[in-house]
Nucleic acid binder design. Sequence first.
DNA 1: GTGGTCTAGACCACG
DNA 2: GTGGTCTAGACCACC
Lengths: 135, 135, 135, 135
Amino acid sequence: MICHIEAGNGIAIYEQIGRQVKFSIANGSLVVGERVPSVRELAIQTAVNVNTVARAYRELQQQGVLNSIRGTGLTVSAAAPATCALMRLDMIRDRLRSVLQEALRNQISADEIRTLVNDEWEKLSNKADASDNTS
Amino acid sequence: MICHIEAGNGIAIYEQIGRQVKFSIANGSLVVGERVPSVRELAIQTAVNVNTVARAYRELQQQGVLNSIRGTGLTVSAAAPATCALMRLDMIRDRLRSVLQEALRNQISADEIRTLVNDEWEKLSNKADASDNTS
Amino acid sequence: MICHIEAGNGIAIYEQIGRQVKFSIANGSLVVGERVPSVRELAIQTAVNVNTVARAYRELQQQGVLNSIRGTGLTVSAAAPATCALMRLDMIRDRLRSVLQEALRNQISADEIRTLVNDEWEKLSNKADASDNTS
Amino acid sequence: MICHIEAGNGIAIYEQIGRQVKFSIANGSLVVGERVPSVRELAIQTAVNVNTVARAYRELQQQGVLNSIRGTGLTVSAAAPATCALMRLDMIRDRLRSVLQEALRNQISADEIRTLVNDEWEKLSNKADASDNTS
DNA sequence: GTGGTCTAGACCACG
DNA sequence: GTGGTCTAGACCACC
C-alpha cells in the first residue's frame, strides 16, 4: 500500500491515512486478512510521526476496519471490503460538495466548474502517467 | 455583503471570511472605496468572535486588499479588484485539485468524478433556488 | 504656528499636537497672551478630526500651558514659556533614549549610531532647506 | 535569546518581539535552523500573553524569517540572516529619523542633538555595564 | 511538549 | 461609532 500525505489541505494527517487505507480496501489492493504496514514502516514511508500513524490505525480498529492479532499486527477485517466499498465515493463526495458549495455561493458558473474539473483532471492524469513511466 | 461560515470544512474561519471578501470584490458586490462591514457588524452577522473577523481583515490589509482609515473603517483598495479577479478561480481550483488528486490516486474513474460533480452541483443549485424562493 | 502630524510613529496624534504647541512656545513663535489657532482652523490645517485637536488643547489647559478666555479662545499662559523651555530638550531626549536603548541592546555600535545620526540629520536639513526655497 | 519589552514606547509588543528576533538573527545569536524559544517559554520570560508572542511569530513566518514545523517548533529560515542583516540598521534608522525630524522642525540645533545623543549613549552604556557586572 | 485557532472581554486612539 | 492591541483561557492536531 502506498500512502500519500498532503499537508495543509484541511484534513488531519491521521485521517488522511485512514482514508487511504479504506480506499485501498475498497480497491482490492488490500484484501481480507492481509496485514497492513507496521506503524513504524508507514511512519517512515510517509515521513510522519509514529504516534500519528498509530492514531490512524487505532481509529480504523474502532471502526471495525482492522483487526489486531497479537504478534502478527493489524489485518483487514472480514467486514471491511463491504463497508469501504460503500464509503468509496462518499468520502470524495463530501469534500467535493464543500468546494462546489463555495463556488456556487460565489457566482462561479456551472461552465467554469466543469472546465476547472476537466482541466485539472487531465493535468493530474498526465502527471500520474508520467511518474508511472519514470518509476 | 453576505458571509457564510461553514464549520469543520478544514478552512480556518478567518480565512473563510477573507476568501468571501475577495470573491465579493471579484464579483463586483464590493467596489473600490466601498466600506466593508465593521468588524463588530460582521462578527454578529456570522456569529463569530470579533477578534476572528479582525484577524481576517488584518490579513486582507497586509495583502493590500483593504485600506484602513482609523476611526472610520476599512475600504476596498484600488488594486483589489484586479488581484481578486485573478484569484477568483484559483481559490476554487486549489481546493478542487486537492480533492481530484485524492480521487485519482484512489482509482476513482473520470466518469465517476463527472457524475459526482454534476449530481452535487445540481443538488446545490436546487437548494439555493429553493431557499431563494422561501425567503 | 505650523503643525506637522506624522501618523504611525507611536505617538498619539493629540499628543503630537500638544508637543508642537509646547515647542512653539519654547521657541518664542507663540508668546504669552497670544491666541493659538482655533480648534477648527488647526483641524483643517492638519487634516485631523476636530475632536482630536480639542483633546490636545484640553490637555494643554490642564497642564497650565493654555488659558481659556471666553469669547476669545485659548491663549498662552504667563507660566508657559518657562515650563516649555524646560521641556524642550527633555521631550526629544525621552524619545531618543528609547531608540538608543534598542540600538544598544541589539549590538549597534557607537560609531554606527553616530553615523546614522549625522547622515539622517544632514538629509533632513537639506530637505527642509529645499522646501524652504520652494515655498 | 533574551528579549526585552519596553511598555509605552509606542511600539506594539508583538512588534517589539519581532524586531528583537530579527536583531538576534542579524547578530548571529540565532543561526539558520536554530529553534526560537517556544511561544509559551517566551511568554513567560517576557511576562507577555501567549497569544501576543504567537502573533509576533506568525508575522515573522509570513515575512519568511521563521519556518514552522508542527509539533516541533519554529526555526530560523535559510533566507533570514541575509534579510535581517539588511534590516538591522534600517529598523533603528526609521525610529531615529522620526525623532530627528521632530527636533529639526522645532529648532533644536545640530549641536544640541549631538550632545543629547552622546550623553544618553554614554549613560545607557554605563548602565548596561553596571548590570553586566552585577549579574 | 509544540504551534494554530477561536472565544470572550477589556482598554485605547480616533471620528 | 471605528479599528488596534492585549489578556486569559480553551481546544485541537501533531511530535
